[in-house]
């Protein structure tokens, strides 16, 4: 049965969302590292063209969720599906093909230190597209100007500021015009105006390319600005799922504390006990 679905999905990629099926689906995903249970039953279906923001405290497992979506980590239990195809246990070649549909902006940018900015951006193009060198240069220049960094092709990542590195990494993530873009803390470590440039970029990419985006962030201003939908991860599960407006109006105290940046009652109590 699953095999039939797979074949259909490959034969006609658009078929997946005709009947409103989700583009990405996580079904009861569990993950632990040693004794650390990070994910304890994640269930979510993401629709094409939507921007979903995942919030949650540091160490909650937000990056782990993203890594499951592109198959960098395999779930202990449960399934991750892209257009109906199960990602875990895929053949290497199928996984490679699948990953060209994704753009991933890593939390630490993850630019290749030994390569120049241009070579970094050209990397996915050289790897997956048979293009003339001139055409590659052209695409690289175009993507760089999209993130507002013209003319830095020959610099090394080490010569860039943290914010510039993030934007170059974003340019690299969209080099293959992916259908799904994963942003891991795109605005962390940037000054507010620069952070807002990134927010605008996320919105612009969505409008221009119709890309599905998943944004992991702590930055509530950014979350409210870009999100169609917000999920909050706590103790290995999504404890909130709704629109930004619903998030503001929620009466779940754990969610409110996080959104308003307040120490929770337990944290305050343990502080007082120690003091």
């Amino acid at each position: 049965m699953a095999e039939v679905a797979d074949k259909q999905a490959t034969a006609n990629p658009e078929a997946a969302d005709v009947d409103g099926r989700p583009i990405i689906e996580l079904v009861d995903v569990y993950k632990r590292f040693g004794d650390l249970h990070v994910l304890r039953g994640i269930n979510v279906r993401l629709n094409k063209g939507e921007t979903t923001v995942i919030i949650g405290e540091s160490g909650a497992g937000k990056s782990v969720v993203l890594k499951h979506i592109v198959g960098l980590l395999d779930p202990e239990k449960g399934e991750v599906r892209y257009r109906g195809q199960v990602i875990g246990g895929m053949k290497r070649r199928a996984l490679t093909e699948l990953r060209t549909h994704f753009g991933y902006l890593f939390q630490m940018s993850a630019l290749f230190d030994s390569l120049t900015v241009e070579e970094n951006l050209a990397f996915p193009l050289v790897e997956h597209r048979k293009l003339a060198e001139a055409r590659i240069k052209e695409i690289v220049a175009q993507k760089l100007s999209m993130v507002g960094l013209d003319g830095i092709q020959s610099k090394k990542p080490a010569d860039l500021s943290g914010g510039q590195r993030k934007r170059v990494a974003l340019a690299r993530a969209i080099a293959l015009d992916p259908e799904v873009i994963l942003y891991d803390e795109p605005t962390t470590g940037l000054d507010p105006p620069r952070a807002d440039v990134i927010n605008e970029l996320i919105i612009k990419l969505k409008q221009e390319t119709g890309a599905t985006s998943i944004v992991v962030t702590h930055d509530m201003a950014s979350a409210n600005k870009v999100a169609d939908r917000i999920l909050m991860l706590l103790e290995g599960r999504f404890i909130f799922d709704g629109t930004p407006a619903e998030l503001t109006g929620t009466d779940d105290e754990r969610v409110r504390d996080f959104v308003q940046g307040r120490a929770s009652r337990e944290d305050m109590m343990s502080l007082q006990r120690k003091g």
Partner: peptide, 17 residues
């Protein structure tokens, strides 16, 4: 260093081994 700065993951995510 490439491992801890996610460069290995980035390679994998870009469909390269």
């Amino acid at each position: 260093t490439m491992n801890v700065t996610e460069q290995l993951d980035a390679l994998r995510a870009m469909g390269s081994d």
